[in-house]
Simulated assay, not measured.
Amino acid sequence: MRPNRGFGFRRSALARSIAEGLTGEGLADYSSGLFLAAPRRTGKSTFLREDLIPECLARGWLPVYVDLWANREADPALLISGAIAQALVPFEGRLRKLVKSMGVDRLSILRTLSWDFSKPQLPEGATLAQALGLLHQASGQLVVLVIDEAQHALTTEAGINAMFGLKAARDELNQGQDGDGLRLVFTGSSRDKLAHLVLNTKQPFYGSSVTPFPLLGDDFTRAYTEHLNAHLAEGNQFDPRDVAEAFQLVGCRPELLRTIIAEVSLELGAANNLGELLRNGAELVRAGVWSEFESSYNALTLPQRAVLEVMANCSVANQPFTPFSEVTVQAVGQLLKAWGSEVQASTTTIQAAIEALRDKELVWRASRGAYALEDKSMAEWLQHYRKGAMG
């Protein structure tokens, strides 16, 4: 985590705890898969790259990292297979020896020796299970596949099939006496979206659960405050409590805190004024985000608002949104009636509202018809908005 140049904050204890869970030795057992969810820009990706992956390497494991938002135009399935293919490249020599020792006919992924290792892609027809099996065999290491923003895989049919392929690979490589072939780590910026990988029997990882990613807390703000104060005059120091309050106001997002600190540093006042400057800066940042939500909300029709409100309620309660169920139709109808709308709630009304919300990038749709808020912070803003309206 680097919210200011020269400042580093390691989360080694959390990385160790997760690694122990991946082996099944910790208090929590993540050997069948770990699903971590937290809002955007709260430090998940940084933690993966700077804490968890180094911990895996220190344990002699082989981490393979892929960010499905690195290229949102590419099919997620291609990004996943490409990352695995790239991880195989350093083991080209061992793979060719492995083919000879096993017999070409027993290894369909390398049915011929014409695989071009210079290209970051698997041979046509190769499955993810085969590729990951080869990677485990060639490296002699436990492979830890880390997929950042994994919910994006649900936006295409190929992406969903890739998720099922990873489940098959997990089941195949973790059989036997050691059970140490593959571990899977998935992260997402939306608990609601990530949950669509585990919610029901039609999803690839049904039976697993989504774990909230621990947000940075007081230990981070204390360390950051100490770093900042080392560059300030003794009589003009930040109070750790003020920094912590500002951090909470911006949703525990290090980059936003850095932005506020940079602005405050341009107008440093007396020491007793630093806390007020921080608070004002944080409230302005939050107000800017909420202003965008309010602008989007005000542009909606009443049916669109009603559907969005019901989705937000489901999000806050960590419940799946079932768009065409009787419960949803009734909930939308009650809101429309309360607002004096003459529109009757129906599955047709709800479908039209959802499509409009998708066009406005307020609602996300998985390729098989599941829906979630594009940004869960919208649900938090709606709660605040309702309180203001009632006040």
Rank of each mutant, 00 (worst) to 15 (best):
L107N: 00
L113R: 11
L134A: 04
F117D: 02
P90R: 06
F91E: 13
R106I: 00
L110P: 01
L145D: 01
V143Y: 05
V143T: 11
Q121M: 14
E124N: 08
S114I: 07
S139F: 07
G133D: 07
A129R: 12
A138Y: 10
L88F: 10
K100A: 11
I109Y: 02
G93F: 08
W115Q: 00
L95T: 07
A85Y: 08
G133Y: 12
L142C: 06
L132E: 11
T112H: 07
S101P: 00
D116S: 13
K97D: 15
L110F: 15
R106Q: 03
P120C: 07
K97A: 06
R94Y: 03
A126P: 08
T127A: 06
Q121R: 15
L134T: 08
H136M: 09
I84C: 05
S139H: 10
Q141V: 03
Q137K: 13
H136Y: 04
A85W: 13
L113Q: 09
E124R: 15
L122W: 13
A129W: 05
V89I: 05
A87L: 13
L132V: 11
V104G: 01
G140I: 14
K100V: 10
L145Y: 03
L98P: 00
K97F: 12
T112N: 09
M102W: 12
V104Y: 08
Q130Y: 07
L128Q: 14
I84Y: 04
G103D: 06
V146F: 07
D116M: 05
F91I: 04
Q121H: 13
G140W: 10
S139G: 12
V99R: 15
S139P: 09
W115C: 00
S101M: 11
L145S: 01
S108W: 05
L128D: 13
L135S: 02
E124Y: 13
F117M: 05
H136T: 10
R94I: 12
L88Y: 10
